[in-house]
């Protein structure tokens, strides 16, 4: 029971991070029907941006409060990663609109390889640890000498995810940008005819996706305290699994899928074997795509002749 409760907390924390990344996948897929393979590496890059920003703020500028530093770091990481997202879309994906179907996917694989090796070249191949932050924990209850603890970090991660998801939901449902986005999702040509700037909407989708990935990157850094150039691939695939599981194209689905993947991974590690936790996640991806391609909250795709 105690182990279960503890793993539930850990799983939800991990799942929140996956959910944030998954939103980037699901939005891009919804609007241009492409798997943004490089999204996992954008997430990794954002963790590096956050790491360096944190070091600059604490050691050069001498900001002592961890909370203030964290908020500033998040804003900086979001802005800079959004710029990366925008540039990647402009350079690698926009010229390929209207090319054959697999061209953007192949280009995205290229961007993914480029980004991870770019970070390796400029930052080196070693793991980068951060100074410990927010180590304090709240002990929820204790029985048989096993304390179920909720750390401040976990609270920050879950609250941030919930707040961002609510804000995002509002953005997509109730603002002109969200309306334009949903219109492009349904029919890009028609949206363009009705005066929506489709290119700008797609750009903004990438910017928003990258900004959310930056939040995920900052939280990942906060949670694990270490990042390396190869950390983009596996979380990226897992977040994509989350997006597919929740129903690709659906925002709540992405977060729901993220939470499920996070829980499955944590429970799998706790009760079965930690070595095969990635195998579990990859198997879910294959099983969901084969048996339930429209996911939990997605709409089934109609094949048109």
């Amino acid at each position: 029971m105690e182990v279960f409760a503890q793993q539930l907390i850990n799983g939800l924390t991990l799942g929140s991070i996956y959910g944030l990344i998954a939103i980037g996948y699901t939005m891009v897929f919804g609007i241009i029907g492409m798997i943004n393979f490089a999204h996992g590496d954008v997430f990794m890059l954002s963790a590096f941006i956050a790491l360096i920003a944190f070091l600059i703020l604490t050691s050069f500028l001498g900001i002592a409060s961890v909370v203030v530093a964290l908020i500033l770091v998040m804003i900086i990481a979001m802005a800079l990663t959004a710029l990366w997202g925008w540039s990647i879309e402009r350079i690698a994906y926009r010229p390929l609109r209207g090319s054959f179907r697999l061209a953007p996917l192949i280009s995205a694989i290229g961007v993914s390889i480029f980004l991870s090796n770019f970070v390796q070249v400029v930052q080196g191949a070693r793991n980068k640890p951060t100074p410990p932050m927010m180590r304090e924990v709240i002990v929820l209850f204790e029985r048989n000498g096993y304390a179920v603890a909720l750390s401040y970090r976990q609270i920050v991660i879950m609250v941030t995810t919930a707040v961002l998801l609510a804000g995002f939901w509002y953005l997509v449902q109730h603002t002109p940008l969200g309306r334009a986005q949903r219109a492009c999702e349904q029919d890009r040509k028609m949206a363009a005819l009705l005066g929506i700037d489709v290119d700008r909407t797609i750009s903004l989708t990438f910017v928003l996706g990258a900004a959310l990935a930056a939040v995920a990157g900052t939280l990942y850094l906060l949670y694990y305290g270490v990042v390396s150039f190869s950390d983009g691939f596996v979380p990226g695939v897992k977040a994509f699994t989350a997006a597919v599981l929740g129903g690709i194209g659906s925002l709540p689905g992405a977060v729901l899928g993220g939470l499920i993947i996070g829980l499955v991974e944590t429970f799998w590690s706790a009760y079965f074997s930690i070595e095969y936790k990635d195998v579990a996640a990859f198997s879910i991806l294959a099983i969901v795509l084969i048996f339930m391609p429209s996911g939990i909250l997605g709409r089934p795709e109609v094949e048109k002749v």
Binding site: I91, A92, A103, I106, G110, S112, F114, N117, F118, V121
Partner: peptide, 19 residues
């Protein structure tokens, strides 16, 4: 060190230039 970096770039450039 730049091998894979150029590799990724080449994939993107080829898709744009000669898909």
């Amino acid at each position: 060190e730049y091998r894979l970096l150029l590799f990724g770039l080449a994939m993107v450039v080829m898709m744009i230039w000669r898909p």
